[in-house]
């Protein structure tokens, strides 16, 4: 194991340890709330990134999250199912929908696919806000989504989701599971095939890869996690309204990935974290928030076209050079 690997593992474990002890450092519900939003955004960004590894841009990610949120909330509220069954069900629901939509639309590329997903996202929100109001609750959505049911885990007392702290740990565990799963996927044979599709459809097809199959697969996996994020959102924040999953939310998720750096696995995670905190800090300034955010987007794209992660990589290289010089 070389030194670089060592430092990397150290940083990752340090970050996870830090995230684990945060509730001990601050019990301010506001801080935990911001962190939960941040974790949700990480799940969304990294799952959208999976879709982007096959070279497709989706503007329907928030819509798949909405499908997950409504599925989970309705299963619990109308059918009385426990959260622990409703959550995977919501992921599966989003995945099935993605399978159907993806098989139809993934023939399209670039701007065309982007705009079709945009249209699909609008349809989903339109249906949730205007149709079957007795079920979906119309524009005001579903109010009073119950928190997850208490759960018994061996060796620790029963966990009851009455405060923000257990909800935070739930979000953290789900985020870690998602990130780890996608990391394993990326390094698997399947992940390599996805990457090959991004490099060139035609080339991949020539060496015998069924591009449609793999694109649908990536789309389905990405939307599965968006559905899970939706379920987590619904049960953590009590209220589900259609406007939360509008086209703009999808745009934000895309921005996290691109500003973070889409070429690297850590990019989306970094982008979601930095931008969530950034917009939280800007919130104090009222309307100037959007200006600051807008200008930041433009500046990052102009000066760091491969995302914030490239800045980080550059700094790491500089530091390593510095160390070498000191040694030499």
């Amino acid at each position: 194991m070389n030194r670089k690997h060592y430092t990397k593992n150290f940083i990752i474990l340090g970050t996870i340890a830090f995230l684990l002890i945060i509730p001990l450092l601050s019990s301010d519900p506001y801080h935990l709330q911001v962190l939960m939003v941040l974790l949700l955004n990480i799940i969304l960004a990294i799952s959208l990134w999976v879709i982007m590894t096959v070279g497709q841009l989706s503007l329907a990610h928030a819509a798949f999250m909405a499908v997950g949120a409504y599925t989970s909330a309705l299963l619990v509220m109308k059918l009385g199912l426990p959260f622990w069954l409703a959550m995977p069900a919501s992921g599966i629901m989003a995945a099935i929908l993605a399978l159907v939509i993806g098989s139809i639309t993934l023939r399209l590329k670039g701007a065309y696919f982007l705009l079709v997903t945009f249209a699909f996202g609008e349809i989903v929100i339109l249906i949730f806000s205007n149709f079957w109001e007795s079920l979906f609750g119309g524009v005001s959505g579903l109010i009073g989504v119950p928190p997850p049911d208490p759960i018994s885990i061996p060796f620790i007392p029963q966990v009851r989701f009455v405060s923000k702290v257990p909800l935070y740990y739930l979000a953290l565990s789900l985020t870690l599971i998602t990130v780890l799963t996608i990391y394993r996927l990326k390094n698997s044979r399947l992940g390599l095939t996805f990457g090959a599709l991004k490099e060139g459809d035609l080339l991949a097809e020539c060496i015998g890869i069924d591009i449609m199959k793999y694109k649908v697969m990536a789309f389905t996996v990405g939307c599965f996690f968006a559905g899970i994020a939706g379920s987590l959102y619904a049960h953590s924040f009590v209220v589900v309204t259609p406007i939360d999953f509008s086209f703009y939310h999808s745009v934000y998720i895309l921005i996290y990935v691109v500003v973070g750096g889409e070429s690297s696995f850590l990019g989306p995670i970094l982008g979601a974290s930095v931008l969530t905190l950034f917009s939280e800090i800007l919130r104090k300034f009222g309307h100037y928030e959007s200006i600051g955010y807008g200008i930041a987007l433009i500046l990052v794209m102009l000066f760091l076209p491969s995302g914030i992660i490239s800045l980080l990589e550059r700094i790491i290289v500089k530091v390593q050079e510095l160390f070498k010089r000191i040694k030499g």
Partner: peptide, 23 residues
């Protein structure tokens, strides 16, 4: 700077839209 590149130009146009609207 981004002519012909779909994704960065998209992000820049979103940033512009936000900035112009709020200004």
């Amino acid at each position: 700077p981004f002519r012909g590149e779909l994704l960065p130009a998209l992000i820049v146009s979103l940033g512009l839209s936000m900035t112009i609207q709020t200004l």
